[in-house]
Design a protein around this nucleic acid. Structure first.
Lengths: 250, 250
DNA sequence: CGAAGGTTTGAGAGGCCTCAATTCATGTGG
DNA sequence: CCACATGAATTGAGGCCTCTCAAACCTTCG
């Protein structure tokens, strides 16, 4: 791996508090690899042999069933993913594919588990990551079960705006059909829901969203700190919530 | 707490591998309490000060938003719940209420966190629980996003049958309206979906379900080991999936 | 400039929900 | 033991929401 990546990795919640010895040991068995866009990194059902750490680019986690496909999360640097499957030494429940050209560190699950046994700080960090990931998924289930599409989209727009530092205007970080799938609807429905929200305080310009009336939008969304990640404490900055990993940096 | 509970608690995945010292220490700061049915144990948004361990009875985890309510999980003995919120020292994302008269052990989150710091075995067990819980929630999201109501119900029936040792006939463990909410539909829709499945290999007798044609039902469900918990390795026996805890015993 | 793929718009069907009424199960008090 | 009250489950009617299929439009990129 490149040395210039180390500081970012080292700053991951997973590794921040870990001993230098543990960290260097892990990095020794880790290797980096670059992948072109649209490449399937692994498929759901594959044994999770490596903890993946996205250093550069973007990766989409999705799930398939019966010919259908649903986006589960989009991972941005610097974040790890499929931590849970690695720990349990079990098949991944999601597939992963690159959205852009991506550089990924691959840390053998065996070594990760060994290091956890040795370093209590690492164990604690992993625990924290898992707990955060679990709560993120609980949020997603609540979002799906309790809200309709209009509310989900409105809430996502507000959350995204907050991530961009409260900007009134921002560019969608992924294609609309991916956002649609992430939000549990079709691309057509998303398009119509966007149109409907034009009366609720937003405007569209291609992939750019402009929030013209934040209060109205918040009203339409019914924002809730117990569904939307509204403070920094639980939201490490992923573009779309609940992968296991952390953003920031890049 | 009653001494007769100890063996069951001790056998929880959380505590199984823990030192006697850790276990006894935790049990010393734990106190037991009995609650009548239909009692709100805590509400979403409440700080999670205690890890709850259900020793007897049944507890429902649910979530509210905008006047709506959704069942997230039903916990059966002996299982712990709200582990993630305890670890993060953050508000619970779900509310909990007893379904039956229940006896519950309450373990102060502070002591739990302290014990984790001291005992690596406990830390490892907590990690395992969290990873399992996370994967359970991923399954739930896949279930909601990828399947329709008919498939969700059919799959749940098969899973439930498997939990009951593969019985062709079993009694629903909760009221139908709770099952409906858990599966993300209304009570009316559940009723109609049940009716529809009568042509797909099931029969109904009040709260009793009889699987008359397992193959047909499996066909309708589109069972998938990456959505439904089909082997024992990830399914500790909850009635409805992904709380953080473990069944067995009772 | 043309091809490919994403996005929007339209039309139509179907699924699921809402509201309402009826039936059924449970439990209480007379 | 029955009458009644309460709440669950079912059934029906109607409507909205979301999906599907299809075509047109727009953007990107070779």
């Amino acid at each position: 791996m490149r040395d210039e990546d180390k500081p970012a990795i080292r700053d991951l919640p997973l590794f921040r508090a870990v001993t230098t010895q543990t960290f260097d040991g892990l990095m020794a068995s880790t290797y980096a690899q670059s992948f072109p866009p649209q490449l399937e990194l692994f498929r759901q059902g594959d044994r999770a042999d490596f903890l993946h750490i996205l250093v550069e680019g973007a990766v989409e986690l999705h799930a398939e069933w019966n010919g259908r496909d649903a986006v589960m999360a989009v991972v941005r640097p610097v974040s790890s993913f499929i931590l849970a499957a690695c720990l349990r030494d079990q098949p991944a429940l999601m597939s992963a594919r690159t959205l852009e050209r991506s550089r990924i560190l691959m840390l053998p699950a065996v070594d990760l588990r060994a290091a956890i046994r040795r370093d209590p700080e690492l164990a604690a960090a992993v625990m924290g990551e898992l707990a955060r990931g679990y709560r993120g998924m609980v949020r997603q289930v609540k979002n799906l079960k309790l809200r309709g599409t209009r509310e989900r989209l409105a809430a996502w727009l507000l959350t995204q705006s907050r991530r961009e530092g409260g900007a009134a205007s921002f560019v969608l970080p992924v294609e609309k059909r991916h956002l649609a799938s992430y939000l549990g609807m079709t691309a057509e429905s998303l398009s119509r829901t966007f149109a409907a929200l034009k009366k609720e305080g937003i405007a569209l310009d291609g992939a750019r969203v402009i929030i013209t009336d934040r209060a109205a939008l918040a009203q339409a969304a019914g924002q809730d700190p117990l569904i939307d990640e509204m403070d920094a404490s639980e939201d490490p900055g992923e573009v779309m919530l609940p992968s296991l990993g952390r953003p920031r940096g890049g």
